[in-house]
Simulated assay, not measured.
Amino acid sequence: MERNFSLSMITLSLTHFLLLCLVVAAAAAASNNITTDQQALLALKDHITYDPTNLFAHNWTSNTSVCTWIGITCDVNSHRVTALDISQFNLQGTIPPQLGNLSSLTTLNLSHNKLSGDVPSSIYTMHSLKFLDFTDNQLSGSVSSFVFNMSSILEILLTNNRFSGELPKNICNIFLI
């Protein structure tokens, strides 16, 4: 009987230890994910050359949680950035490729600013993205056919930019849900 009790205690201790390891590993993974999100957003901040409202200077700082920053929405469970909406801030600058590292992003709204340059191809690899709005900027380059192959996308707004070229032949793929 004493031997069974000892084996039960060892089994219980090992179970607790394994659960503790899983919790610590999950917390570390979540921390790394939010760190990746923070680095991507700080790269965006670094690419903004004109911020008349001082949105970034006063709010987007590394000593506060990304989830409290203006224009950022995080999932309450995963603590990952799910929406970036910094529309209508009259921002000038470019979109960094690191923005594509926001792997849980479902909404990307950079409309009604004065962003310029090409849209990085990393944006088109965001598999969770459902809503993309670049309306009223000064973005240029050709509209990549990749944007129309994004399986999760539901709405794309690209008007009033400086895009060139023809729309890809596979544009109809976006309407297949």
Rank of each mutant, 00 (worst) to 15 (best):
L42G: 07
E155F: 04
L99Y: 10
A26P: 12
C74Y: 03
S116K: 09
N137K: 11
D51S: 05
V24D: 05
T106P: 02
G117L: 02
N113L: 06
S62I: 07
L105C: 06
S116A: 08
S78K: 12
N101E: 13
I156W: 13
L44R: 07
Q92D: 08
A57H: 14
N54R: 13
L19T: 09
L55R: 04
V81W: 14
S62A: 14
I70F: 06
H58L: 14
D46E: 13
L41A: 03
F17L: 05
S121V: 02
H127I: 13
P120A: 12
A27C: 03
L176A: 04
K45T: 01
T159L: 15
I156Y: 01
Q92K: 14
I34P: 10
L91C: 07
F175N: 09
T53C: 08
V76G: 15
Q88F: 15
R3N: 08
M9I: 06
E166A: 14
T49H: 06
G165E: 00
L14E: 09
L7I: 01
N4H: 13
S151F: 13
I34H: 00
D118L: 07
N77Q: 15
V81S: 00
S145M: 02
K114I: 00
R162P: 06
P168C: 04
T82D: 11
N54S: 14
S111K: 07
A25C: 01
L7P: 06
V147M: 06
F163E: 03
S62F: 08
L41D: 05
K169D: 15
G141S: 03
L158A: 02
L44G: 06
A40I: 11
L42R: 01
F5H: 13
I153R: 07
N109W: 08
V66E: 07
L14Y: 10
S6A: 15
A30R: 13
I10Q: 01
A83P: 03
T15G: 14
G100R: 09
A27V: 04
C67Y: 03
G93K: 01
V66C: 03
H79R: 14
F5T: 14
V76A: 15
N54Y: 06
L176I: 11
A25G: 12
N63G: 05
I153Q: 06
T94L: 12
G117Q: 03
V76M: 11
Y124Q: 09
N173P: 06
S87L: 02
N32Q: 09
T135N: 14
S144D: 01
S62W: 03
H127W: 15
K45Q: 01
T49I: 12
N32I: 11
T15S: 15
I95V: 02
N101R: 00
N77H: 15
S62Y: 05
T82W: 10
G93N: 09
L129Y: 04
N63Q: 06
N113C: 00
P97E: 10
F17C: 03
S78N: 03
P97D: 13
A26W: 08
C67N: 11
L110N: 05
I156G: 01
F17W: 08
S144G: 07
N161K: 00
N149P: 00
L108E: 00
L139W: 11
R80N: 10
N32R: 07
S78G: 11
L157I: 09
F148I: 08
N4C: 05
I34T: 15
Q38A: 10
N109K: 04
V24K: 05
V76L: 15
P52K: 08
T135M: 07
T53P: 00
F131I: 02
